[in-house]
Every structure is written in structure tokens, then in C-alpha cells.
């Protein structure tokens, strides 16, 4: 009986090790394959040129329009998410700190909100667009993506704020500062690393999300100048080019997905780096 116990343990440890290492292998392969495929077609032209005539038949040009469009949309959406999300997260951790039940319920609702798929936000953004009589434009895209990333922003920032020691908060109040001053001068400063992480996470989600901008941002070969012009986005550029029957265009889709992956990697690595940097001076 004792031997069986030990054999069982060995088998399961081996199984779980296999599961883990095969996961690492598969997930690593994703990035490697996308990179290897993409680097063949990747050139400077891809990054610094907009599509010229005949681009979608294998002609000259690049995907600069999509890169810039994506960054505009993600930036605008992150800005709205900061304006809406930062006060909400501070409110949750400063004003509601004595109402544990309400606080937890709100966190629960925010988590649920996080789970709504982006295509639903896209469809809703489309109904909003029709309601306000907007066309598919940069503005509509920004609003839709902002709806999508705000819960993410609030929850991530809140996660860091909730670890700030209660004493710090109380000390600030005891010195006679108002709750607003406590929020912005103590909590925000102490949780600044979380704020950066949250903003960059929202930005990354905004750049990478395709389903929500599919309806709302439209697609164009030009770089948008005004808020009411349509804007191309990188994920959609990848998606449309992959649908092409011409091999060169598909190659470019792989290159564009390499660009997107690199942008996402830069964002998440800099989020890590900045959050470490800003949490160094925190009061423990």
C-alpha cells in the first residue's frame, strides 16, 4: 500500500510537470512562430509608409495608418479611462474604506464588468453611434474602447490602492487634511506605481482589441487628422490582410502582427519597469 502511494505521487508530479512544461512550450512557440513568420516580410517601409495605390494587391506601402490609428484610439480611450477610472478607484479606497461590505460588492460588480466580451461593447458602441448620429470615426472608436478599458483600469488601480496601509491614510486625515487631499496627495502618490500599471494595461488592451473597433472606428488608408474621420487599427489591418488571396499581402499581415506583438511586449515590459521604479520610494 505504501508503495502504491509513492508511485501515485510520482505519476502525478510527472504529469503536472509535463503539463507545465508543455504549456511553456506551446505559449513560447506562439511568440516565436509569429516572430519568425513576420520578420521575413518586416521592413522599414511597413512602419513608416501608409498604403499606396494597389497596396492590397501586393503594391508599395506599409501599415503606418493602422499603427497611428491604433495608438490614437488607445491613447484617447486611456485618457477617458483615467478621467473616469482614477476618481472611482480612489473613491472606493478613501471614502468607502469603512464600508467593507459596499466596497467588496462594488469590486464584485467591477469584476463582472471586466468579463463582458469586447464584441458586446462593439455592438453597444454601434447603437450609441446610431443614437447620436455619428459616423464610424475616431471619436466613436475612442468612446467604445474607453467603455471597454475603464473597468480594467479601475480594478487594476484599486488592487494596488487596497494594499496601502490603513495607518498612512489615517495619519493624513488626523493631520487635518480633507478626504480629497488624502486621495490625491497621499493615496495617489503612494499608489502611483499601480496607476502607471493600470494605465499601461488599459493602453495595451486598447491597442490590441479588434472586436470593439470593428463597428465603430471604420477603416481607411489615411492617417486620421480629425476626431470625426475614420481610423484604421492594427488588429483590423492584420485581419483584413489575412483574408487576402495574394501571398505577399498575407506575408504583410504576419509582419503587421509582429509589429503588434512588439508594441504589446514593450508596453507590458515598461509597465513592469515603471511600476518597480515608482514603488521604490513608497512608505512601507
Amino acid at each position: 500500500m505504501n508503495r502504491w502511494k509513492i508511485i501515485e505521487e510520482k505519476i502525478f508530479i510527472a504529469l503536472s510537470a509535463i503539463a507545465t512544461y508543455s504549456l511553456i512550450a506551446v505559449l513560447g512557440l506562439i511568440i516565436v512562430i509569429v516572430f519568425v513568420k513576420g520578420f521575413n516580410a518586416l521592413s522599414l517601409d511597413m512602419v513608416i509608409k501608409t498604403p499606396k495605390g494597389g497596396y492590397y494587391y501586393g503594391g508599395e506601402g506599409g501599415v503606418l495608418n493602422a499603427i497611428v490609428g491604433s495608438i490614437y484610439i488607445a491613447f484617447g480611450a486611456t485618457l477617458i479611462a483615467i478621467v473616469l477610472g482614477m476618481p472611482a478607484a480612489l473613491f472606493l479606497n478613501v471614502h468607502l474604506v469603512r464600508h467593507k461590505k459596499t466596497q467588496e460588492t462594488i469590486r464584485y460588480l467591477l469584476d463582472v464588468l471586466w468579463g463582458i466580451p469586447s464584441i458586446v461593447y462593439g455592438a453597444f458602441g454601434f447603437t450609441l453611434m446610431l443614437f447620436f448620429g455619428l459616423n464610424a470615426s475616431l471619436l466613436a472608436g475612442i468612446i467604445t474602447v474607453a467603455l471597454l478599458v475603464t473597468p480594467i483600469m479601475v480594478r487594476t488601480f484599486d488592487e494596488v490602492l487596497s494594499t496601502i496601509p490603513r495607518g498612512l491614510h489615517e495619519a493624513s486625515l488626523a493631520l487635518g487634511s480633507t478626504k480629497a487631499e488624502t486621495s490625491y496627495k497621499v493615496m495617489l502618490k503612494q499608489g502611483f506605481s499601480g496607476f502607471i500599471t493600470a494605465a499601461l494595461l488599459a493602453f495595451g488592451r486598447g491597442i490590441g482589441d479588434a472586436a470593439s473597433v470593428l463597428f465603430t472606428a471604420g477603416y481607411t488608408d489615411l492617417i486620421p487628422v480629425n476626431l470625426d474621420e475614420p481610423a484604421a487599427t492594427l488588429p483590423l489591418a492584420i485581419f483584413f490582410q489575412l483574408g487576402s488571396p495574394i501571398p505577399e499581402v498575407r506575408e504583410r499581415a504576419y509582419a503587421a502582427s509582429t509589429i503588434l506583438t512588439i508594441i504589446i511586449l514593450i508596453i507590458s515590459l515598461s509597465a513592469r519597469f515603471l511600476s518597480n521604479r515608482y514603488s521604490k520610494t513608497n512608505i512601507k
Binding site: 506562439i30 488592451r205 490590441g208 482589441d209 479588434a210 488588429p235 503588434l260 506583438t261 504589446i264 508596453i267
Partner: peptide
């Protein structure tokens, strides 16, 4: 955090 399009390409 990788976008779903990347998973689609893969």
C-alpha cells in the same frame, strides 16, 4: 495580454 488577433494568426 496578447491581443486575440495574434492568437488568431498563430
Amino acid at each position: 495580454g496578447l491581443p486575440s488577433v495574434i492568437y488568431g494568426v498563430w
